[in-house]
């Protein structure tokens, strides 16, 4: 049992981090908090990948003269380089959405937005959802 824990502690830590991030993503009501959770969630997965790549006694995967020393596995590094970029791009788009949401609703708390959209949803149906008239509203927001 102890061997199991010691042999894989990196994996256990990544699972913990992932659960923390995941919890924040689905439970927090503040939209920015969700994004922070998302970042923790994703980096946790990156940590998992990087942990796979480690070889006992290995060196960084850059060619050098010394013989006999193993290199760490470069493939997960490559994959994660790509994934990090994807993650930051997602974050940027999410934050842009949040800025727009704040402009339209005046809040970034999910529960308040839900209440607001329920109210305006009712208005929509009574207005026969003639949303073209809401263009004026949109322009005001801009």
């Amino acid at each position: 049992m102890i061997e199991l824990i010691l042999g894989k502690y990196n994996y256990w830590v990544y699972i913990t981090l992932m659960m923390i991030g995941f919890y924040a993503m689905i439970e927090k009501e503040n939209l920015i908090k969700k994004i922070i959770g998302m970042n923790i969630f994703q980096t946790a997965v990156f940590l998992f990948y990087i942990s796979i790549a480690k070889v006992k006694g290995g060196t960084a995967p850059i060619l050098w003269e010394k013989e006999g020393i193993p290199y760490d596995n470069p493939i997960p590094h490559v994959l994660i380089l790509t994934a990090i970029v994807v993650s930051v791009s997602t974050t940027a788009v999410a934050l842009a959405l949040i800025i727009r949401i704040f402009k339209e609703y005046g809040t970034i708390e999910e529960d308040k937005i839900l209440i607001m959209s329920e109210v305006s949803g009712k208005q929509d149906s009574t207005e026969n959802s003639k949303f073209l008239s809401s263009t004026s509203l949109l322009q005001k927001g801009e």
Partner: peptide, 8 residues
């Protein structure tokens, strides 16, 4: 989308 709900 034109409606603000599109953002949400």
């Amino acid at each position: 989308g034109k409606k603000r709900a599109a953002l949400i």
